[in-house]
Nucleic acid binder design. Structure first.
Length: 546
DNA sequence: GTGCTATCAATCAGACGGTT
DNA sequence: AACCGTCTGATTGATAGCAC
């Protein structure tokens, strides 16, 4: 970490530099650098990400801070380590389907990687410290895919290369000169760039961090300086070794505290906030000061906007209005689509009878057949549509429509189905009662409520199954049902006791699950045990308290 | 030659379900 | 309800083979 002066303005700002001397385009071990600065948006700030990563490891995971007495103790440690912390792979021989590997090619000493240094070699070493094991290529790819997919970006090729190309494109769109982009991406080959220029393309860094120029580098969350007592609580080990080595380099204590003050509102449910540091009065005081800087400045910007560009604000508010209307229409459209999907599922599953009209025009004698079909994925309609096979007596479908034509319906009894995934047909008992195993894929209160009240994949809802066949449909799934029922009861309790809508009640329970890191099963168990009540009112009612 | 995907094996946490 | 062995799914490391 370095503190660099602003160009053309007073003050400095911290930057994080990475130094590397090997890589695909660096065949001659030339020392190259990459650098970044604090981002305007705390959510994507690399300082935030790295300092939270370290805080989590040293405070929450209780990882031992390395002894920095000499370089050999910590030079091989990886910032992002890849092996399982509890991995016992050293006892095993070889993994994967390939031939067993020998340990001979796995020893990596110093920086002399020679001609072929692949990640795999670093990953191998038999009894190596997991903290010294680099993240594998496959894991890197998976992490990238998860991150990209969660942002709605689907990449099929060069997944790990995406930031390299997209950063260049983003910078180009933001007007960063090509020369700067070349320098950041190490795409230059001319002698001047390679040998003489400062390797930090400051303009590129600033734009990617959300700032126009050095003078405009002004972080609202960076104004408030934490007191030394608070700072000492963050990375005390780092402070210790910095003092021993008389190292004045910037450390992340201040930026961590400033970022934490804001991030707590961005991801309030993250378990890191359980740490005692964030409950101390020192931190709470500091956090309120940081927030006051942010809110006061936001208002200033808004008043400036009102004073100088009233029309812009008017336009913005009308655009907002349009967006709201658009969202409302979109919501209605989504709802209609869901209803349509539900109706379609009902038809597929046989819950809803379907009227078909078939006209055959193959020859001059046009035939028209009309029939009502309680359809099933196994429904067979032969060429004429009138030659009906006599099916085994179908179960009593919970359909309310009984058509006079129902006896013509070609329904084939669904074949028994034992896999949880292939839910397109239901097995039936000899008495014609469907045997439904509740979905193991359901992990949220919303999905459970849906399965209970609407039914999954077009099958009967649990409510319907209960009302039609009592407990018989679930003779092999009692425990699961009973635990889940407690959650449905809790939703109903919230509606009854404090007047919430069903969707609000579902949100409340889902919020509890998220905050406490409970699975559905855990929530159900806690409700069953009476160790958790959805509301104080419910608790009073159930326990008969005044 | 390199990056990526498909695939297998190892491992772990948590769910499941039978027994007491 | 507690216990405990088994099952299941998720995660990770690793390799072969394909595409470029």
């Amino acid at each position: 970490f370095q503190e660099v002066p602003k160009v053309g303005a007073e003050g400095t700002y911290p930057i994080m530099m990475m130094i590397f001397n090997q890589g695909k385009t660096n065949k001659f071990n030339k020392t190259q650098t990459g650098a970044c600065m604090r981002n305007k948006m705390v959510e994507i700030c690399p300082f935030m990400a790295l300092s939270f990563h370290f805080f989590w490891r040293w405070h929450c995971q209780k990882e031992t801070f390395p002894n920095m007495e000499n370089n050999g103790n910590w030079f091989q440690l990886k910032v992002l380590y890849g092996a399982r912390p509890q991995s016992r792979s050293s006892e095993k021989k070889g993994k994967g389907k390939g031939p067993e590997r020998t340990g001979a090619d796995s020893v990596v000493v110093g920086n002399d990687y020679g001609e072929e240094s692949s990640d795999d070699e670093i990953c191998e070493a038999g009894n190596q410290n997991p903290l010294e094991t680099a993240i594998s290529k496959g894991t890197h790819t998976r992490f990238m895919k998860i991150a990209l997919n969660s942002a709605g970006i689907f990449v099929t090729r060069k997944v790990t290369h995406v930031p390299r190309s997209s950063a260049a494109k983003m910078a180009d769109l933001a007007g960063v000169p090509e020369s700067q982009i070349r320098r950041m991406g190490q795409w230059n080959t001319d002698t001047m760039t390679n040998s003489y220029l400062d390797s930090l393309p400051r303009q590129f860094m600033r734009v990617m961090a959300g700032f126009e120029n050095d003078a405009s580098y002004h972080l609202l969350r960076g104004i408030e300086e934490p007191c030394s007592d608070l700072k000492r609580m963050v990375f005390p080990w780092v402070d210790y070794w910095r003092n021993r080595h008389a190292n004045n380099a910037v450390n992340q204590t201040t930026t961590f505290l400033q970022d934490a003050a804001v991030m707590m509102d961005v991801i309030p449910e993250h378990p890191i906030w359980k740490h005692e540091l964030f409950k101390t009065q020192l931190f709470l005081n500091f956090q309120s000061k940081v927030k006051s800087h942010i809110t006061s400045n936001t208002e200033t910007e808004s008043s400036i906007l009102r004073r100088f560009v009233p029309k812009v604000e008017l336009q913005l508010s009308s655009i907002n209005q349009i967006l709201r209307e658009f969202n409302e229409r979109q919501r209605q459209s989504d709802q209609a689509q869901r209803q349509l999907q539900q109706a379609f599922n009902n038809v597929i599953s046989g819950k809803q009878q379907l009227q078909l009209s078939v006209r055959l025009n193959n020859d001059n004698q046009a035939t028209e057949t009309t029939g009502t079909v309680a359809s099933s994925p196994h429904t067979n309609i032969n060429n004429t549509g009138t030659n009906v096979t006599s099916p085994p007596q179908p179960p009593q479908h919970p359909s309310e429509n009984t058509s006079p034509l129902v006896n013509e319906v070609p329904v084939i009894s669904p074949t028994p189905n034992t896999t949880a995934n292939a839910t397109i047909s239901l097995p039936y008992t000899n008495e014609g009662i469907p045997v439904y195993k509740m979905s193991r894929q359901v992990a949220t209160v919303t999905d459970l409520w849906d399965e209970w009240m609407v039914g999954r994949d077009g099958f009967w809802s649990i409510e319907e199954l209960e009302s039609k066949w009592g407990t018989k449909w679930r003779s092999h799934d009692r425990k699961w049902f009973n635990i889940r029922k407690k959650i449905i009861d809790a939703v109903n309790d919230l509606q009854k006791d404090i007047g919430l809508s069903s969707s609000s009640a579902i949100s409340v329970l889902q919020g509890v699950m998220n905050a406490r890191h409970w699975s559905l099963d855990r929530l159900g168990t806690e409700l069953q045990k009476g160790t958790y009540f959805p509301s104080p009112e419910t608790k009073r009612r159930k326990l008969g308290l005044p």
